[in-house]
């Protein structure tokens, strides 16, 4: 029987309201169904891969340290599996931003030939043949006919409940914990401009993180596309391949820093294995190009952070780890419906 009981989404006090599509309100039954579907391997062509295969809770909802993910046919992807954290506040999805909504994003991996390589009619048909799923779709959507739109809506509902807001940093913000001196130094560095103060350009000898990884409202991303100076020649055009605008070449989604210590490797192509490598990339100033973010101001000479400051940044990044989120029973594989 259809049960539209609303899901009691707990938005952290310092987070913005979540923009939930009017045509897909979050319900208890929708989330329950979405969780089953997230871990449902029958959505793939050979019934071997689910969303959770490349976004595993054991790896903080990434692909277990792999640079690229392997599809059902053995095909290797070209971008690193993104961590699933606080997705309900994102403006767009995929590294190149090609999906405007979670519902759109979810449709793609199922049919992508290098990922789950299935057709939606087949996938929906497999679910339709399962009486447990037939009941779950009736309960969630009052729908007897299962289709891709409803599958995407259910998974999107589930993903919107995956909220991380209980890291050490969150506890400090709530007055429940204290930073060490090194962590506090790291926090301070993220909020300071880079560059030598004596040059008269407003430099503060900081790490200049805040432009892109804004702490505002707890999200640690500015919600934009940026070219962070990885390459001078782009083998992956990123957003430029989506928009067709050369000025978007080399730009990728700015990910949240939450759980960054658990989600190696880093960057859209997983080129950096450690946080130390990432910090050193920014300390070096990055590689100039025609589309490099103006926030990468020190391609000549770099930030010149001393080793102690680089270590302090790592200490700060570690405070964003939220094991309660990763281990939350509500987000684990529920088994078969």
């Amino acid at each position: 029987m259809y049960d539209p009981t609303p899901y009691a989404l707990e938005i952290p006090a310092n987070f913005p309201p979540m923009a939930i599509p009017p045509d897909n309100p979050i319900t208890v039954k929708g989330v329950e169904l979405g969780r089953f579907l997230f871990y449902e391997e029958r959505l793939s062509g050979d019934n071997s891969l689910s969303c959770g295969s490349c976004h595993s809770p054991q790896a903080a909802f990434t692909d277990d340290g792999n640079q690229f993910s392997t599809g059902i046919d053995g095909s290797i992807g070209t971008r690193n599996s993104m961590a699933l954290i606080n997705l309900g506040w994102d403006n767009f999805y995929f590294w190149d931003g090609r999906a405007a909504t979670l519902e759109q994003q979810i449709l793609e991996p199922v049919v992508n030939p290098i990922e789950m390589h299935e057709t939606w009619p087949n996938a929906a048909g497999k679910l339709q043949a399962d009486s447990a799923y037939r009941d779950l779709f009736i309960e969630a959507f009052d729908a007897e006919q299962i289709d891709s739109t409803l599958v995407a809506r259910a998974i999107a509902q589930f993903l919107r409940t995956m909220i991380s807001a209980n890291s050490k940093l969150d506890k400090v913000m709530r007055g429940e914990a204290f930073f060490t001196q090194e962590e506090q130094r790291g926090v301070t560095l993220t909020q300071l401009e880079g560059g030598d103060p004596d040059l008269g350009l407003g430099g503060q000898s900081g790490a200049d993180c805040f432009h892109c990884h804004s702490q505002a409202a707890g999200l640690f991303t500015n919600g934009q596309m940026e070219n962070n100076g990885l390459d001078s020649v782009f083998t992956d055009l990123g957003a430029g391949a989506v928009t067709g605008n050369p000025q978007d070449n080399g730009k990728f989604k700015v990910p949240t820093l939450r759980n960054v210590a658990l989600t190696a490797p880093y960057m859209h192509d997983g080129r950096f294995q450690t946080m130390e490598e990432v910090v050193e990339h920014y300390n070096s100033g990055g590689t100039p190009s025609a589309t490099i973010s103006p926030f990468m101001k020190f391609t000549q000479g770099g930030l010149q952070l001393p080793p102690s400051d680089k270590q302090a940044l790592i200490a700060f990044l570690n405070t964003l780890t939220d094991m309660d989120f990763v281990n939350d029973p509500r987000f684990q594989d529920p088994g078969a419906p």
């Binding site: 913005p16 923009a19 403006n91 300071l192 805040f210 804004s214 505002a216 707890g218």
Partner: peptide
Amino acid sequence: DPSQYVAGHPLSVSNGTYWTW
């Protein structure tokens, strides 16, 4: 408080215009 604004509002943090510091 920037956290009161939903995505789509001109003052939402998702616009990348807020200076936390």
